[in-house]
Amino acid sequence: MIPINNVFENLDATYKAFKDFIIDRNYSEQNNEICWPSYKSGISKQVYSKQYEDLIANRQFTFLLTDRSAVQIYYSYDNTGLKKIRLAYYPAPKTINIEREDIDTYYGETFSEALEAHYMLLHDLMGQGISVSNTTHVRFDYDRDVTSHNTNHLQIDGIQELRIPFKHIILPFHFVDFIIQNTYSDEYFKINKSPNIVYLLASSNKNLTDVDIGHDYYSIFMSM
């Protein structure tokens, strides 16, 4: 199991490697935790744009990227070692191109009462000038002590039933590298061969920890 100091060093090196993509950093190591100051646990059950706004307003992020997306990196340890991880990606909300009249139509067409209420709410929100956003957040969670589901998994927003199990416990670099690679691909491929990043990737890989997840869906998905 990788010690907390090494995770912190990895995080620091990650910032330095990708600092051109980052406009605000916000992390420290304190009381066996690597996280942002004023850490609040729990995920707000809000519409995504509000989740994002709350996160910015309360500075619940480790990195703010130049495209305004936010990254959370949280590692927590206790006497027996690594206890919890939360690695989350919150893209800047993108509004969808939709008119209030369209919602009227959907409302008229739906057969579901629940969705009727949903459309009505959307209609009201748009009337108040709130734009509708389709985006959502995605995160890796690790919880050593959880028994009801897999300890290490990928989860998409509030979908509780479909946690995608993961074999490896990853490091900050893996997560940020993955995000930059996919969201800034042009710029990323200008720097990914730099000795700095090559070295970081190699040393991070060396420190991957495996967990027993029974069925390795990740590998299955990756090989499809």
Binding site: K19, I22, I23, D24, I56, T66, R68
Partner: peptide
């Protein structure tokens, strides 16, 4: 503002951009 915020962050100075990243009344 993004660039300025980044440059300030490099120097360890924290900043906010109300109406762009933070909400307008911050």
């Amino acid at each position: 503002f993004g660039y300025m915020r980044q440059q300030l962050d490099f120097l360890g100075v924290k900043s906010i951009t109300p109406g762009y990243i933070e909400s307008a009344d911050t």
